[in-house]
Design a protein around this nucleic acid. Sequence first.
DNA 1: ACAATAATTGATTTTACGTCA
DNA 2: CATGACGTAAAATCAATTATT
Length: 247
Amino acid sequence: MAQDDEDVGLALGLSLGSGGHRRQRESRDEAPSSAAASLLTLRLPAESGGQPQVVVKREVVRAEEEEYEYEYERALYSSSAAAADDDEGCNSRKKLRLSKEQSALLEDRFKEHSTLNPKQKVALAKQLNLRPRQVEVWFQNRRARTKLKQTEVDCELLKRCCETLTEENRRLHRELQQLRALTHSTAAGFFMATTLPVPAATLSICPSCERLATAAAAGASPTAAADRTNKPTAPHLFSPFAKSAAC
DNA sequence: ACAATAATTGATTTTACGTCA
DNA sequence: CATGACGTAAAATCAATTATT
């Protein structure tokens, strides 16, 4: 923004306060009404005759915000205590400590909505006797905290899920080893000669159609079987000795 | 010393507008 | 004149960081 504006601010001994960087807006030291007016005249194309009503509306809301900001700062700096405070720490960043009531109200509003529109922001700032920018920052930080907390919760959930899956994987590996041991120790013909059910894990060719049982390869998983029958199947309920439903 | 959190900074996205072919 | 592409500026939001209590 114009260096002149900065100079005026310094000459008046007013702090630009927080958020100086955020928007290249006009100087806060200028009376808001004139600031808004100048904005409007700047934005309204005198020659073009265009009607940028949306812009005007937006600027009016912004003007409201700045008007309050201006009032707030005037009140702040007109008080002797604040002036003394300011003298003491010219460049030091003063950290606001919100009162219990302020925090409670902010929390309440955040529960309703995690974001604020400019009007709500100004209204809440007035109610709390804070600058709109402070309310805005609070909401910003609050959103960040919420997100962080949620990330932690999600992380914990994933960790537990991973543990469960690892355990399940181990169990299935053990089961597979048992099945393999059983298969190798038994003659294949044994099953053919008896009426005993064929272990699913050993089934590679479908006895009825003599095709490679896809269930034994890709579809051998219990979920694949469930997909075909539309029945929900939990892996731990799957019995490798159940009759193959490949065909 | 450390945690909590207000404030700052820089980047990105969204929105509205003007210009031009 | 209408329209779409493009550039620009302002504002909103976020993530990362700093500084204070």
